[in-house]
Design a protein around this nucleic acid. Structure first.
Lengths: 348, 348
DNA sequence: TAATTCTGGTAAAGCATTTTACCCCGCCGC
DNA sequence: GCGGCGGGGTAAAATGCTTTACCAGAATTA
């Protein structure tokens, strides 16, 4: 029993047509087929509970109908909400268009052996979405000027011509600046991302400083400290910030994790986050809403970034795309919660 | 250029042997081949930078060297840390054994069409890991008594004979009971998981109650309220718990999210979590450590659960496993942070 | 009525492997 | 000197589908 799976051949026999016809129906390459025939074929499929083999389908035209999600080697990358949200969005967009996704981690050995190329060459996947790209990932240059289907998710590179989709970080920076300025803050600190590593993060910081300048508030170098996007480094950065500028009334962190680190730092010197010093984050990770006080932040819809990235990559793959690798920007919004207050209204 | 990828045929021509020979060498099915020939073939491969096509390889022997990670349809499942950690563990174990993983969401339509079966039948994957299984997932019965390679991750079913790997929930329940009892608590509340839905969660609750009983502390039904494992439902459950038993000095929640909901509930009635009422969680999600006060909890190593699950499934697939579907239990540990205090030492 | 164009469909050649016979040849034992 | 055997290979079928011709017959045109 179950000797061999039911194949297109069985469907053909059952419905009394040729293999070709079945295949055409299957591929919705229907135009040439009459309604009656199509119907018969579909019924036969239903009756035999036929499901085409992905493997066999891919062979002739060298398409796997699969995308790879590639992440850098970090401690349990898939457990990170940031990647998780991106992946959720990617998954949904992929399924919508009939694609599957596989997960890959770019370990050192993986890079050395150029496995990402093998992936494309052995027809395992039709395209690659790279998450968490930083300036460290020099191997991306191999894709510069290539028409290979690789897309950088939520970062970009000025030195190379690669496809990418990013959040509107400059807008986020301006949003943050306006918000804090509107609240009357003038002594503002900023915890930025690691220097020279992530373009988007630098755009955020640049736009923040510039807009603040336009509003008549100058941020000196002393009011900016960098962190590695982690809670611990956010805490350390905030410690430094407070030591340098005891009169700060507001802090803007380049991501929520560092903002939560700032909470810890403030408590360490007996200041109440939100009440004594306003804290504004960026990203809107789930933990932000759970913090005490709930963290106000700039919401980046990472699920949407993932989905948009995936759609664009598929456009490239399916040739629905003009050859220029234009970059797309996903809009951001301000989420007011309890961690920012106007200067006058602040406690004490 | 690059008209057609270099195939096994090119290697055969280059090294002057037959397709078969190349294939045999490729598959380390070497016994019959002389060293000299093997060497020649390997050199040809190297020279031509040949990489076999995964697609084509899978066709004849119906093996994909791929595993599917299947999750129920939840809002952005992959963004959930719980699933994320499991997936990280799964990924690592899979890579170690030369397997890839694909992601799948079991939507309603997916179930109706039995796509999980298709997955196995069309040779897309060699096995399935199902995360987030509850009693609602009746379709799992199709795998009962089957030798199909499906494994339930971190839950199990008494009514069906399925492979599974779970955390040691009974041990967790005992750990929690002993800890709170040791701290001198006698008025204890418990927020359990949804009733009749998740076996492991019930084991946790049962063991908790039983051990508490052994320590002379009886938990009445009034001291137990269920939640849906979410922050909001944890808050609601805790509200109810406090309304019923104003004198509670400790609360044990079946997961960290609900414990954090309890924090919110307590604050709502002006009680300080940790100080006025001890709160103990379960899981040890990253947010637990960030909460204020940091949440004491039972650590379940989900990354390890994922890895162990994957290894077991691969054993089954590769026939390294005795036919009995024995269940495996991953040990748990208590993580003391700031949210539990002894009764005497409590504030007020 | 003959020539042309559709319409609906089919045969067959791939696609890149694995795997199952089967084959040739030299050597051994008798 | 011959049957048997084993080492080292190979030819060819099979895997399940796509796609490119190509082909009847009907409808339309000239």
């Amino acid at each position: 029993m179950g000797k061999t799976r039911t194949s297109i051949r069985d469907v053909a026999r059952e419905s009394g047509v040729s293999l070709t016809t079945v295949s055409l129906v299957l591929n919705k390459n229907d135009a040439r087929i009459s309604d009656a025939t199509r119907q018969r074929v579909l019924e036969a499929m239903e009756k035999l509970a036929y499901t085409p083999s992905r493997l066999a389908r891919g062979l002739p035209n060298r398409r796997a109908n699969t995308l790879a999600v590639l992440v850098p080697q970090l401690q349990h990358a898939f457990a990170d909400v940031y990647f998780g949200e991106l992946i959720s969005g990617i998954y949904e967009a992929a399924v919508d268009r009939g694609y599957r996704i596989i997960l890959e981690v770019a370990r050192r050995e993986y890079i050395r052996r150029k496995e990402y190329m093998t992936l494309l060459e052995d027809c395992s996947v039709d395209g690659i979405l790279f998450l968490g790209a930083t300036e460290e990932h020099r191997w991306l240059s191999e894709f510069d000027g290539t028409d290979k289907p690789l897309l950088i998710v939520n970062n970009h590179f000025s030195q190379w011509n690669l496809h990418s989709v990013v959040c509107d970080y400059p807008a986020a920076g301006r949003l943050a600046a306006d918000y804090l300025a509107d609240l009357g803050h003038t002594h503002i600190g900023h915890i930025c991302g690691p220097r020279g590593m992530v373009r988007t993060s630098e755009e955020l910081t640049d736009a923040f400083i510039e807009r603040l300048g336009e509003r008549g508030i100058r941020l000196s170098e002393r009011q900016i400290v960098d962190g590695q996007f982690l809670v611990e480094t956010g805490k350390i950065a905030c410690d430094e910030l407070l030591a340098r500028n005891p009169k700060l009334t507001a802090i803007f962190a380049a991501n929520d994790k560092m903002a939560l680190g700032a909470y810890q730092s403030l408590r360490g010197v007996s200041k109440a986050p939100g009440a004594d010093v306003s804290v504004l984050g960026c990203d809107d990770i789930p933990t932000a809403a759970l913090a005490d006080p709930p963290l106000s932040t700039i919401r980046m819809n990472f699920v949407e970034v993932g989905a948009a990235s995936c759609r664009r990559l598929l456009d490239v793959i399916e040739g629905k795309e003009s050859p220029e690798k234009m970059n797309q920007r996903i809009p951001v919004t301000l989420v007011e919660r309890g961690s920012c207050h106007s200067v006058e209204g602040a406690r004490r």
